[in-house]
């Protein structure tokens, strides 16, 4: 039964059975427990309290930081001077000794050994310095050259890139450009002829000579009389890229790298020029 009527009424509403049960305390505590518990807790708390008191707030004497630097410097100076004195005393006390007159005789001794050419180490090594401890099979050197020759013949033939002579390289380049120019000129002249009845005599001669050269196939023969420098100058004056012209003229299609190789290796063009031996020809020819 509850003293609180509201709680009793509530409980009766939920369960008359439970409301009828005494709510008296069935548990018990040892005699004097609460007094002892209070003493235990206070003892523990006092321990905490004294531990807290044992840690005072950190303080420094008044003016401590103002004099700190000077104090440290004074201590450093004192320790240095004390250390110096101790080192000085140690320095004067020699631990090792040398024979009497050792340093007087030392220069002369060194000079005489240099002059004799027999330093202590070399005196020991001198007798053995020409002895080779290693050996080779008998007749090795006699057979070596023959063996190398035979192995060389077994090697697969190296890739050969056929190159034109340097002099003809420039000629082919110039011929390619000039042939193109001549072709364009002829087309231009033919167009003009439709507009003007009579071309000039000089241009007619040029066209006649050009047709003759192309028909007889002796363009190379004509260019062979020109120097490399003249051809390079001609190409440059006509706004041509000498390197590009050379590459176009000397490399066969089958020797050109695939497009993918330019993507995978940005030195592909350099490598090709090196293979063709025409890189920086402008510099070498000038």
């Amino acid at each position: 039964m509850h003293n609180n009527r509201n709680i009793q009424a509530e409980l009766e509403g939920i369960s008359p059975l439970i409301a009828g049960i005494s709510n008296r305390n069935v548990y018990s505590v040892p005699d004097g427990y609460f007094e002892a518990m209070l003493a235990d807790v206070l003892q523990t708390v006092q321990h905490f309290s004294s531990a807290e008191k044992a840690i005072p707030g950190f303080t420094v004497p008044e003016g401590y930081f103002e004099g700190l630097a000077g104090s440290i410097m004074n201590r450093i100076k004192t320790e240095i001077s004390e250390e110096s004195g101790a080192l000085q005393a140690l320095r004067s006390a020699e631990t090792y000794t040398v024979p009497d007159g050792y340093f007087d005789a030392l220069p002369g001794s060194i000079i005489s050994r240099i002059q004799s050419g027999k330093e202590e180490g070399s005196v020991l090594l001198e007798p053995v310095k020409h002895i080779n401890p290693y050996r080779v099979p008998a007749g090795y050197f006699e057979e070596l050259s023959a063996e190398i020759s035979s192995r060389l013949t077994e090697q697969p033939p190296a890739k050969v890139i056929i190159m034109q002579k340097r002099s003809s390289v420039f000629r082919y380049a110039a011929a390619a450009v000039i042939t193109g120019l001549m072709g364009l000129s002829i087309i231009s002249l033919l167009n003009n002829r439709q507009n003007t009845e009579k071309p000039s005599i000089a241009m007619t001669d040029v066209i006649t000579d050009a047709n003759k050269m192309l028909k007889e196939g002796d363009l190379e023969k004509q260019f062979s009389s020109l120097s490399d420098a003249d051809i390079v100058n001609y190409l440059e004056e006509n706004g041509e890229d000498v390197n590009a012209a050379l590459v176009a003229s000397v490399s066969e299609d089958k020797n050109l790298p695939d497009e993918e190789e330019y993507i995978f290796d940005d030195k592909t063009l350099d490598n090709l020029l090196n293979e063709l031996n025409i890189k920086d020809n402008k510099t070498t020819t000038n």
Binding site: V29, L38, L42, Q46
Partner: peptide
């Protein structure tokens, strides 16, 4: 502080214990 804490314990110890 300690006296006050002792009183707090005495006041509530039995209720809290049970």
């Amino acid at each position: 502080r300690e006296a006050a804490f002792t009183r707090i314990i005495k006041k509530y110890q039995e209720k809290l214990y049970w």
